[in-house]
Write a protein that binds this DNA or RNA. Structure first.
Lengths: 227, 227
DNA sequence: ACCTGAACACCGTTCAAGT
DNA sequence: ACCTGAACACCGTTCAAGT
């Protein structure tokens, strides 16, 4: 009764809301999955929803908030796993989860670039990593620092590999990297020229875990007193 | 005489070239240094040069090539340093050089995202890192992998810190990270809540070298047989 | 409250001309 | 060869109205 309806019986003053935050996020996810982040724009989204660009701004603050909502939705789908007891393995497994959640969304690069932490629903990953680091014998400050090292490595790996994939998908010609390698002088760059053919075949996604393993080993060696 | 001048004595057929690749790169660098990469556009560049957007395309292939030219110019200014003899220190110093060259240009983020290697004039950095890793006892393949781990860490650190700085410069209000931290539940996230105040004061730029040290230690432990 | 149309202030790039 | 003007196909966001 406090909400003063106007006698029409519909229960609200204005017109029936056609749009909702949920509908906008759904439409955005569809574009992301089918066409990539390059095709996601407020105007395109409005078109898909048979609406106007401005109508969207009644439901999301701006485009950044929309991307954050999408990341949040994704992170909510990952359930928090039980971590192993061994300190080293525990930190490694927690760090791997960070990568695994983000690796499912190539559009993450744009969000990575927009803030240095994650959506609220992914915060358990950060908590797990910091906790696992403390469990290794690190001080809280060193654990925070260990998280940052892991985060930078993961963000860099995602940035570079997703961007490469995107480039490859749209440009058929040789990448700049390939052109660069072809022009190298064997006298000046003996190591790189010797590795030139093998360079591309090393798939970085397979080696991500090995990198994490070595980083975790180094972090524990450098920051946890005993073992 | 082969160049068939047309009697006017000026030595070329068309009008005097007003623009040059060098002049374009110079103007771009000025915008980059004084206003940031967000203000660099082909149209803005044309305006600064009292020209038209299209005139630029006679001197650079596109905007990506322009950014690459800028990175190349920057890398050329760094002279290749003598590296220490100790294998661990050698790899660390070579890896530090990668960071130091890139850290001088905040606009690098856009270039990072556009390819997974560097401008030709920065290739000595990659050569040095791979060579230092082999010098630690790694196989060429493992050295290539070690370079990648170092590169991902460095790229991620630059991406996240430069982006944060940019955000802070333009938006006076609390960042998303600060808002996220403020909303955390102490029961669910004990580690993060305990670290909440100390989180921002840890300057990541100071800790980059320590991170490299630990990563190098881990890489050597995991990939070089003896010591 | 929710939505629209028009506008502001931009982008990178291409095409067809001009000298 | 070098440059221009106009156009194509877009952006995110704001303002002032409409129902």
């Amino acid at each position: 009764m406090a909400n003063g309806t106007s006698g029409s019986g519909s229960g609200h003053r204005g017109r029936l809301p056609r749009l909702s935050q949920e509908a906008i996020v759904d439409a955005a996810r569809t574009i992301l999955e089918q066409e990539g982040v390059g095709h996601l724009s407020m105007r395109r989204l409005a078109k898909d929803l048979d609406s106007t660009p401005m109508a969207l701004y009644h439901h999301v603050r701006n485009k950044d908030e929309l991307l954050l909502l999408l990341l949040d939705e994704r992170a909510r789908k990952f359930t928090r796993l039980a971590l192993p007891d061994d300190p080293h393995d525990r930190l490694l497994t927690a760090a791997q989860a960070l990568h695994d959640v983000l690796a499912t969304c190539p559009w993450i690069v744009e969000v990575l670039a927009s803030d240095d932490l994650m959506a609220v629903s992914a915060m358990w990953i950060v908590e797990d990593i910091v906790d696992a680091a403390i469990n290794c014998g690190m001080s809280p400050e060193d654990a925070m620092y260990a998280y940052r090292v892991i985060w930078y490595y993961t963000a860099g790996q995602l940035l570079i590999n997703f961007t490469r994939d995107r480039r490859r998908a749209q440009a058929g010609d040789a990448t700049y990297r390939e052109r660069t390698f072809a022009s190298l002088d064997a006298e000046e760059f003996p190591r790189l020229v010797a590795l030139a053919e093998r360079w591309p075949e090393l798939d970085t996604r397979d080696t991500h875990r090995k990198g994490l393993e070595d980083i975790v080993t180094g972090l524990i060696a450098g920051n946890a007193p005993a073992g």
